[in-house]
């Protein structure tokens, strides 16, 4: 359980050095995307994808946000269940140049293979820790597709400070902390 305090985006060299069980506190830009945003990204031509998202950590999250005097205030923003995105995540990662995923509950073999290929990481944030996560978001930099997708499904670009603890739950070497995937990789 080595503890790291890293800047976003995490470099490929650093990604390769990290192993399952390591703990990360992340500072910098991340963006949210759930089911609808994933589906939309796959249907858009590359030129229409906001360049600002490229290469940043992708956070599986549908935040609870309110607007106060024209400014966005994030009230609660813990992770959503990552596994729902298993069928399309590898393709989205490829299209956006994303290497680092943040979520809860883990991903399946398709994403595990993409993490090995890129190289990439799956970082587990504690599910339900919504207020703690919101406290670590220091700024809402941009919101994309709010009108089309609604509050929880829009893509939110956040500045985070010491966001964590994030557990390296799937690493770039094919290892996983989740019991089922662990069995698969050792067999």
């Amino acid at each position: 359980m080595t503890e790291y305090h890293l800047k976003s985006p995490i470099s490929p060299e650093q990604i390769r050095r990290l192993k399952i069980g390591d703990i990360i506190y992340l500072t910098g830009k991340i963006f949210t995307a759930r089911d609808k945003a994933h589906q939309l990204i796959l249907t858009l031509p590359a030129a229409e994808i906001p360049a600002v998202l490229k290469g940043l950590p992708l956070y599986h999250c549908g935040p609870l946000v309110k607007q106060e005097r024209g400014k966005w205030l994030v009230l609660s923003a813990g992770p959503t269940t990552s596994r729902r995105l298993e069928m399309i995540e590898a393709e989205v990662m490829e299209k956006l140049g994303v290497s680092v995923l943040i979520g809860k509950g883990g991903m399946g073999p398709k994403t595990a293979a993409a993490l090995k290929r890129r190289p990439g990481l799956y970082l587990a944030y504690t599910g339900g820790a919504g207020v703690l996560a919101a406290e670590q978001i220091t700024d809402v930099l941009e919101v994309i597709w709010l009108r089309e997708l609604g509050m929880a499904d829009a893509v939110w670009l956040f500045d985070v400070l010491e966001c964590g603890p994030l557990v390296v739950a799937m690493d770039a070497h094919g290892a996983s902390l989740y019991p089922k995937e662990r069995m698969c990789t050792t067999e």
């Binding site: 999250c61 549908g62 935040p63 609870l64 009230l75 609660s76 923003a77 813990g78 504690t126 599910g127 339900g128 820790a129 919504g130 207020v131 703690l132 996560a133 919101a134 406290e135 929880a152 603890p165």
Partner: peptide, 18 residues
């Protein structure tokens, strides 16, 4: 982390989970 979040939610009167 769960316990810290419960504490923070009660203090700030915010929903525990988004």
């Amino acid at each position: 982390t769960i316990l810290a979040n419960i504490d923070l939610a009660a203090k700030t009167h915010r929903p525990i989970c988004q």
